[in-house]
Design a protein around this nucleic acid. Sequence first.
DNA 1: TTGTTACATTGCAATATTACGATTAATATT
DNA 2: AATATTAATCGTAATATTGCAATGTAACAA
Lengths: 110, 110
Amino acid sequence: MGITKTDKFNEEQNTLATIAKVFAHPARIAILQQLFKLNTCVCGDLVVEIGLAQATISQHLKELKNLGIIKGNIEGTSVCYCINVEVWENTKQIFLKFLNQDIENNSCCI
Amino acid sequence: MGITKTDKFNEEQNTLATIAKVFAHPARIAILQQLFKLNTCVCGDLVVEIGLAQATISQHLKELKNLGIIKGNIEGTSVCYCINVEVWENTKQIFLKFLNQDIENNSCCI
DNA sequence: TTGTTACATTGCAATATTACGATTAATATT
DNA sequence: AATATTAATCGTAATATTGCAATGTAACAA
């Protein structure tokens, strides 16, 4: 089958899974880290930096853009990418809420 | 190809992607939420609760177990699952560190 | 105009994931 | 012992993801 049955789950669960899916590839993690690290727009050199084919990087950038956490500005023949801070914060909060759920007492399993 | 080129990335990036991949399915999110919510072992009724086939749930549980964030205790014919708090905390910290990286100034893109 | 550069898109092959029926293994129950 | 219950595993089909060569597109440079 290969198709996820999203109708079995609530919106929150599907949203969390969608966000996680975007984080679920080292190239996309690397792109985000690079954008954070440089603290400025990155124009093109992501391909050189990461070492995958240009088409592949472009595809990963597309997925990050689809989630909205990065944005691209066209500057002449090149495109500059950076974090979309608002969307990033929003996305982060959703994920933090999930990660920060804690167990009060965990005396059941050994 | 379909195969991720992990050798192009550092350990941290691959680890983050691996963790995210486990979170990247609503059924696994639902299982974790259930385990947190009940605050006790969940014995079997995950199949009923989530509404996927037993084999499917078992497969998702396996992936959560592979990451180590849940553990299962055999009790007679059934198995009780719960969060492995130590591993969960560890995993959480790795992810928090990634999520909490922030930009000091973001004046580049419009 | 012609070429060049930078990136997106398309098309395709290889591999991974999701889902489930069927089977197996282990323990309980009768 | 025979049967039932529970969950893991196997096998398989459908779909998704990854990666890249080739191509398309838009802006600039000569």
